[in-house]
Amino acid sequence: MISTERDTMNTPHRVILDTDIGSDVDDLMALVLLLGTPSVELVGVTTVYGDTALRARLAHRVLGMAGAGVPVHAGVREPLSGREVWWAGHEGALYPDLEAETYDSDEAVRYLVDTVLAAPGEIDVIAIGPLTNIAAALTAEPRFAESVRHLWVMGGDFADGTPEHNLRSDAVAARIVFDSGMPITITGLEVTRRIDIRAEQLERIAQAGELGELIRAEIEQWWAFWDETWNVPHDPVTVLTLVAPDLFEVTAPGHVEIGDGEREGCSTHSPGEGRTRVVTTLDVDAVGERIVAGIVDATDARPSEGE
């Protein structure tokens, strides 16, 4: 079971979501899940990796559909490692007139630093894309590491060491983050892959209004991209490590090392010196249900016309 100080308090979790929304549908699902979780105050959204302006417009559109007035800031486009950005090509395709959508700034790193330092120990950051923005914030302001309440990361594979997209996409940034000394909980593929969205769950989501229909369309787009009908909600699982810690178990704190060369992006965890915990297991049925219920609740909470 994950234990954090705020778990026993009534204070909402104040959260910034750092995301590469637009490629895999799971970023969209994570954003909507946060909006459907009463214990979360979504303070802001920052985008990372590739066309971050497009990603910011997309996030802003979704927040508007949900009636949520949350600031969105576009961040660093290119990995610190120099690795080429992977781009699926369908990003934003389901959003009419997306080029007309506005967002708050192109200064995600400055936003992260200013917001966290203004409320030290109060802001959780959930990072569900490459860690470029987080590394840039640490480089710009070393106090960022001690001021973040906790960093929650989707990334890695701690079972067989397979390179995982988020860490491999910017291994340099990942090393900066895991060497920073900030408190981190990371959820790897060996855990997230235990969850899938089944047909009956997808139908429940799709019936939950405009946002639900959008998620189904994004899932079907993702299926078409891979020519397979499967979907693993990696990022929503990571959200739940913060908001439903009783559904997970973790290692003792230690250090995560990120491989280079032929092992670029591979991750290993060494218990002992360090402040990073790795999620080891989860309640499969309960986690799947919480994801679906949270997404449905986000749509149910959307303001009606005229409110």
Rank of each mutant, 00 (worst) to 15 (best):
T8P: 03
T11H: 05
V15Y: 00
T19M: 09
V25Q: 12
D26K: 12
L31K: 05
L34K: 06
G36T: 08
G36K: 02
P38S: 01
E41H: 05
D51I: 08
A53L: 02
V62H: 01
A68Y: 05
P71I: 09
V76N: 05
E78C: 08
G89C: 04
E91W: 06
L94P: 12
L94W: 09
Y95Q: 07
L98Y: 02
S105I: 07
E107I: 03
E107M: 07
Y111F: 15
Y111A: 15
D114I: 08
G121E: 00
I123M: 01
D124S: 10
V125W: 05
I126C: 03
P130I: 13
N133W: 00
E141L: 10
S147Y: 05
L151S: 10
M154C: 15
D157L: 12
A159E: 15
T162Q: 12
L167M: 13
A171Q: 09
F178V: 13
G181K: 01
T187Y: 12
V191T: 13
I195V: 12
R198N: 09
Q207C: 13
Q207V: 12
I215P: 06
R216G: 08
A217W: 03
T229N: 08
W230D: 15
V232C: 13
V232S: 13
P233A: 11
P236I: 05
V237T: 07
T241V: 07
V243T: 15
L247G: 02
F248L: 02
I258N: 00
D260G: 11
H269I: 10
H269G: 08
S270Q: 12
G274H: 01
G274N: 01
R275T: 15
R275F: 11
T276D: 06
V279K: 07
D285M: 08
D285E: 14
V292Q: 04
V292Y: 08
I295V: 14
A298G: 01
T299H: 11
R302I: 14
P303I: 08
